[in-house]
Design a protein around this nucleic acid. Structure first.
Lengths: 128, 128
DNA sequence: ATACTTAGTTACTTATTGTAACAGGAGGTA
DNA sequence: TACCTCCTGTTACAATAAGTAACTAAGTAT
C-alpha cells in the first residue's frame, strides 16, 4: 500500500466516500430519506427529475453499501420502503454543511430579500 | 411576496450546490487546493487518475462559479496557478465532514470497534 | 373492459467522461 | 542543428454513464 502523497490526515477517504455517494443522484436521494422512510414512488414524486432507472440504480447502489435499508411488504400492490441505516443517517452532517454553504454563498432571493436587481428571464447558467 | 419555499429543512440548496460541485472530480480537485495554490501539472501529479481533459474541465467549471482563481504568468513555459477563492475555501467544512464520515465508517479499525457480532471474512477494502 | 396504482426492468438513445495525440516555445542534450 | 522534455492545455474519437419509453403483473376504481 503505497501512499506517495499526503503523509498525514490525507483525504484518501474522500475518494472512497465518493465511490459511494459520487453518483449524480445519491446526495439528493439521501436528502429525501433524511426526512424519514419513503416508498419508491414517493421518492420519485418528490424528485421528479430523476428517471425510474436512475432512482432504482441509486437506491440499489446505496443499499449495497449499507447506506439505505430496503424492505419489501407483500401487500397488494407490493410496498417497498426505503430508509436510512445509521451509517446513512450519519451522513446528514455532510448534507447539512452543503446546505449551509448554499445558504451562505448562493443566497436565494427568498432568503435574503435583496430584490433590487433586474432578474433576467433566461437562466444564465450554461454548461460548457 | 409569498414564501412558499419549503418551510422545513429547505434543501433546494443541495441541488444548486451540486450543479457546481456535482462533477466526478470537483471534490477531489477542491481537496487538493485546500492545501494551497497549485499549478496544473502539480494537481495532475497529485491526482494521477484524472485525465488532463477532466482536470481542465473541472478547473474551468469551478472557476466559472467563482470557486477557484486562475492566474496566468507569462513565464516560459507558461505558469498557471490555481487557488481557492473565499467561496471555495468555505467549502472545506463539507469535505471535512465527508472525511470524518469516511474515517468513522470506512476505516476497518472503526468497523472492528463497532462489530460485536462474529463476522467472518468480509473484505472492508475493495479498492487499492 | 379501461385506466390507474404499485415497483421496478428492458432495450434503446443520448450525454458525460476517458484516451491518445498534438500544440508551441524555451532549455537541455548530442 | 536536431531531438527531447517541460508546461498547460485542446482536439477528435472511444468508452461509459445516464436518460427515455415501453412493458411487466396483480389489484382497485370507473
Amino acid at each position: 500500500m503505497s501512499e506517495p502523497f499526503c503523509p498525514i490526515a490525507c483525504r484518501a477517504n474522500v475518494s472512497k466516500v465518493l465511490e459511494i455517494f459520487g453518483g449524480k443522484w445519491s446526495f439528493l436521494v439521501l436528502d429525501l430519506l433524511f426526512s424519514g422512510t419513503k416508498r419508491y414512488n414517493q421518492l420519485h414524486r418528490q424528485l421528479p427529475q430523476i428517471s425510474s432507472k436512475a432512482l432504482s440504480d441509486t437506491l440499489r447502489h446505496l443499499e449495497s453499501h449499507g447506506i439505505v435499508d430496503r424492505r419489501v411488504y407483500a401487500t397488494t400492490p407490493v410496498t417497498v420502503e426505503y430508509s436510512l441505516t445509521p451509517k446513512g443517517i450519519d451522513f446528514q452532517t455532510v448534507l447539512h454543511e452543503m446546505d449551509a454553504w448554499g445558504i451562505k454563498w448562493l443566497d436565494d432571493v427568498q432568503h435574503e430579500k435583496r430584490a433590487s436587481t433586474p432578474e433576467p428571464a433566461v437562466a444564465p447558467d450554461n454548461r460548457a
